[in-house]
Amino acid sequence: MDALKSAGRALIRSPSLAKQSWGGGGRHRKLPENWTDTRETLLEGMLFSLKYLGMTLVEQPKGEELSAAAIKRIVATAKASGKKLQKVTLKVSPRGIILTDNLTNQLIENVSIYRISYCTADKMHDKVFAYIAQSQHNQSLECHAFLCTKRKMAQAVTLTVAQAFKVAFEFWQVSKEEKEKRDKASQEGGDVLGARQDCTPPLKSLVATGNLLDLEETAKAPLSTVSANTTNMDEVPRPQALSGSSVVWELDDGLDEAFSRLAQSRTNPQVLDTGLTAQDMHYAQCLSPVDWDKPDSSGTEQDDLFSF
């Protein structure tokens, strides 16, 4: 819950932080000083300027060897085509990944977070970031790969997607708890209302004896509580940590079903599988986004697919 609360507080303090972009060759504004600060901008989305290598189908939802083989196929196909790589912007948030063309600003792909089953910074092609997700059109699994400016960037994108998945799962947990509370309150309110109706004398007997209905007592009954809980029953509950912020979080049926399955089948359902080692994760978390744009010590960066 700490990640969720800190993310909400950060967004309320400075929503404009989320509009910064990394990996864009110096076009961005001043960047936060450390990885923790940038992680807090996830709610509205972190932007990464990358190059799209392509996509291939895979048979399993996750796995280092599986993704490595898929990336190898994608890279080989991209090299064989001889075409310049498409420059894209990857927007990562707890909602998922939005992929747009840098030149036309046209939407290429919009992947809900619950469809993503794996992401990684490839070991062999260490400047490549990739994720595996279920197609929104059918049940097939797709591996999408992107060329980053350097290994640090690939690791940073991988960690960002993993963190977005974690925050999304926490949102789901909060929403589920809130819905259970509202359902319980609604049920209790309905029981109270039913009890009051059972003990209320029939209207005919009131008229016969000349008694008047006590409207004041009726007004004191917990009807307002019942209506408050039943009027918006169809509205999706939102985490309290975000009250007053500009973010509107809505959970669709697909996300609810997917996270429910994860909660039942996995020990740590909030953790998205990645190909990063503990050492890689520690190294990337210690980086400032400013470091992502620094040239690798191995030599001059080449803006070309064939540089790796």
Rank of each mutant, 00 (worst) to 15 (best):
L4H: 02
S6F: 11
S6D: 11
R9Y: 07
A18T: 04
A18H: 05
K19H: 15
Q20G: 15
W22H: 13
H28W: 14
R29T: 11
R29H: 04
R29C: 15
L31E: 05
T36V: 09
D37V: 12
R39L: 13
E40S: 06
T41F: 12
L43C: 10
E44K: 13
M46Q: 11
M46A: 09
L47A: 06
F48L: 06
F48D: 06
L50H: 05
K51E: 03
L53N: 07
L53G: 11
G54V: 14
L57T: 00
L57Y: 10
E59P: 12
P61T: 10
E65G: 14
E65D: 15
L66P: 15
L66W: 09
S67C: 01
S67Q: 09
S67R: 01
A68V: 12
A68F: 12
A68P: 07
A70S: 05
A70H: 13
I74W: 12
A76S: 13
T77I: 14
K79M: 03
K79N: 15
K79D: 05
K79F: 11
S81E: 10
K83Q: 09
K83N: 15
L85A: 00
L85G: 13
Q86N: 12
K87S: 10
K87Y: 14
K87I: 14
V88F: 15
L90Y: 12
K91M: 13
K91N: 15
K91L: 11
V92Y: 06
V92N: 12
P94W: 09
R95M: 11
G96V: 12
G96E: 11
G96Y: 08
I97M: 04
I98T: 06
L99E: 09
T100D: 14
N102W: 04
T104K: 04
Q106F: 09
L107W: 04
L107H: 09
E109D: 11
N110D: 10
N110R: 03
V111C: 11
Y114A: 02
Y114L: 00
R115W: 11
A121E: 10
A121R: 05
D122P: 13
D122I: 13
D122N: 14
D126G: 02
V128Y: 12
V128S: 13
Y131L: 01
A133L: 13
A133N: 05
H137R: 15
H137Y: 07
Q139R: 14
E142V: 15
E142M: 10
A145K: 05
L147T: 09
C148P: 00
T149Q: 10
R151T: 03
K152C: 04
K152S: 10
M153I: 05
A154L: 07
V157E: 01
V161I: 07
A162R: 07
A164P: 05
F165T: 01
F165L: 01
A168N: 01
E170Y: 10
Q173I: 13
Q173E: 02
Q173V: 10
Q173S: 15
V174E: 06
V174Y: 01
V174P: 03
E178V: 13
K181V: 04
R182I: 07
D183T: 08
D183V: 00
A185L: 10
S186P: 06
G189N: 05
G189K: 00
V192R: 02
V192E: 02
G194H: 05
R196D: 09
R196W: 01
Q197F: 08
C199I: 04
C199A: 10
T200S: 05
P202G: 11
K204D: 03
K204M: 09
K204I: 15
S205V: 04
S205R: 12
S205A: 09
L206Q: 07
A208P: 03
A208S: 12
T209I: 15
N211K: 13
D214Y: 11
E217R: 14
K220W: 02
A221W: 07
L223R: 13
L223C: 10
T225H: 09
T225R: 10
A228C: 09
T230I: 05
T231M: 06
N232K: 10
D234M: 06
E235A: 05
V236C: 07
P237L: 15
P239R: 00
Q240P: 14
A241T: 06
L242N: 00
S243P: 09
S245R: 12
S245C: 08
S245V: 03
S246I: 11
E250V: 04
D252C: 12
G254W: 06
D256Q: 04
A258L: 01
A258K: 05
S260M: 00
A263F: 14
Q264H: 08
R266L: 00
T267E: 08
P269E: 02
V271C: 10
L272Q: 01
L272K: 06
D273T: 08
D273N: 09
D273G: 04
D273H: 11
T274E: 08
G275A: 02
L276P: 08
T277V: 08
Q279D: 07
D280Y: 11
M281P: 03
M281H: 08
Y283M: 12
Y283K: 01
L287P: 00
P289Q: 04
P289L: 01
P289R: 02
W292V: 02
S297A: 07
S298W: 05
G299W: 10
T300A: 10
T300K: 05
T300I: 07
E301I: 06
D303K: 05
D303S: 10
F306T: 00
F306V: 00
F306L: 05
